[in-house]
Design a protein around this nucleic acid. Structure first.
Length: 115
DNA sequence: GTTATGACGACCG
DNA sequence: CCGGTCGCCATAA
């Protein structure tokens, strides 16, 4: 069965609030493996419906969506996010700077999020 | 146990 | 800016 890492991924994705989005890389990072971005994608596909994972809130680090697969149609995910209040730029990319999911909002005073 | 694939990300040209 | 390639991790065959 899924390794601890994968289970961690499910928990993180499930913890993504409404109107927010997270990238595969960030999820992998939160899961403990910053390089497991691909594993995250794999986990999403393997994710059981029982968990009701908001995989539509999981996007690329670039802010682009996983067009070509979606839930049947590539535009579905984009519309779902828009419906949640997520905004897109002229390039159909999510404004991560505005909808980036932050597990620990500390509000770095110096603006040094150690990214 | 090894090889191949993928809903990624970073790097190079 | 865009396209192609390599690398990393986990799962399937």
């Amino acid at each position: 069965m899924s390794s601890e890492l994968t289970k961690r991924i499910y928990q993180i994705v499930q913890d993504i609030p409404y109107g927010k989005v997270a990238t595969y890389g960030q999820i992998a990072r939160l899961a403990g493996n910053p390089r497991a971005a691909r594993a995250v994608g794999f986990a999403m596909r393997r994710a059981p419906d029982s968990l009701c994972l908001p995989c539509h809130r999981v996007i690329f680090q670039d802010g682009s969506l996983c067009t070509g697969f979606a839930f049947g149609d590539p535009q579905i995910q984009r519309q779902m996010l828009k419906k949640e209040g997520v905004t897109f730029d002229d390039q159909d990319r999510v404004r991560l700077d505005r909808h980036r999911y932050i597990p620990e909002p500390g509000g770095m005073p110096d603006g040094n999020p150690s990214l």
